[in-house]
């Protein structure tokens, strides 16, 4: 109080602020509280413009993969697949379906957290436009997370319905696999979003991520065969792969995959940690990048 100059005290006389100041403070309240939802609304409207593509892939891919692997590959694999040596096996389709579910969730996350992020920062800088309104950079990130979470949940739910149709879910807790897959998608997606947010130019980095990260991750994350089938020195790839953790977690729910409880807890903790780190980093990068 003592630092205030006499002049300031005179102009900022006690009591009501200037009417335009009061108006600003009042008008800022709703955006401060609901800004992220407004961003999500915007994203949903954009998604509507490619709704047909979303429906086609959302319905087409479970049919193609489950039928292809269920009726095709599974017919060659007669023996039940056991996750660990000595464990009781399950039919191949039951084994592979939760992995396909998790993989589908990560595919949607990859789609939504890569080019659209670059688009918003650079190619069609809608994030700059949002930031010129009362929306804060962190709310832009939150809004995107909300909208993509809804899309991943919906895609995974559709996938799950087809899994039921193909008789690939013996456990009554199977529906929880949808949540496990979504969590996996967010774990990978948030990290990807943080990385893409740092790119000033896309000189092929995003394509590189797809080719040399997403594709190998699918091959080495216990998707089509148990991780234990890999030589020991390749197995760590699975341990750091969000797809592996999401797949294993989905298997626990979809058919009571026998693994120790502590390992199930590890899957959840790793996925939540990845999602949180990616989310927080994305918010910080957004604040730095948009506030330059």
């Amino acid at each position: 109080m003592s630092a205030e100059s006499p002049r300031q005290q005179a102009t900022d006389a006690p009591g009501a602020p200037r009417p335009e100041t009061a108006r600003a403070l009042a008008a800022g309240t709703r955006p401060r509280r609901f800004g992220a939802w407004y961003v999500a609304e915007h994203r949903f409207r954009v998604m509507r413009s490619y709704l047909q593509t979303m429906l086609a892939t959302g319905i087409g891919s479970p049919i193609i993969y489950l039928y292809g692997l269920g009726a095709g590959l599974a017919s060659l694999i007669d023996a039940p697949v056991a996750s660990q040596p000595g464990a009781e096996g399950v039919p191949y389709l039951v084994f592979v379906a939760p992995a396909l579910l998790a993989s589908a969730a990560i595919t949607v996350a990859t789609e939504e957290f890569s080019y659209p992020i670059m688009l918003g920062y650079k190619w069609n800088p809608t994030f700059t436009g949002m930031h010129a309104s009362p929306i804060r950079p962190g709310q832009i990130v939150d809004g995107i997370v909300i909208s993509v979470t809804v899309r991943i949940l919906a895609t995974s739910a559709v996938y799950y319905l087809f899994m039921l149709l193909f008789g690939a879910v013996p456990s009554p807790l199977g529906y929880l696999a949808v949540l496990a897959a979504t969590l996996g998608g967010l774990a990978f997606g948030h990290l990807l979003m943080a990385y893409v947010s740092t790119l000033e130019q896309d000189t092929g980095q995003i394509a590189l991520v797809m080719r040399f990260l997403v594709l190998p991750m699918t091959l080495f994350s216990g998707t089509f065969f148990p991780l234990s089938q890999l030589p020991w020195f390749l197995q760590p790839i699975g341990w750091v792969s969000p797809l592996w953790h999401a797949t294993e977690l989905s298997r626990v729910f979809a058919y009571g995959y026998p693994e120790p409880l502590w390992l199930t807890v590890v899957h959840v903790v790793v996925l939540v940690a990845m999602a949180a780190v990616g989310w927080i980093a994305s918010r910080r990068i957004a604040a730095r990048r948009l506030g330059r």
């Binding site: 335009e20 108006r23 600003a24 403070l25 008008a27 800022g28 955006p31 401060r32 800004g35 915007h42 954009v46 413009s49 069609n124 800088p125 809608t126 700059t128 436009g129 010129a132 309104s133 009362p134 929306i135 804060r136």
Partner: peptide, 21 residues
């Protein structure tokens, strides 16, 4: 008070950033 101030501004940036989608 960034959000409060921005609630009272209209901004026309140098480069258009309309959502082309």
């Amino acid at each position: 008070h960034g959000p409060d101030i921005r609630s009272q501004l209209g901004v026309v940036p140098q480069a258009d950033n309309l959502d082309t989608e």
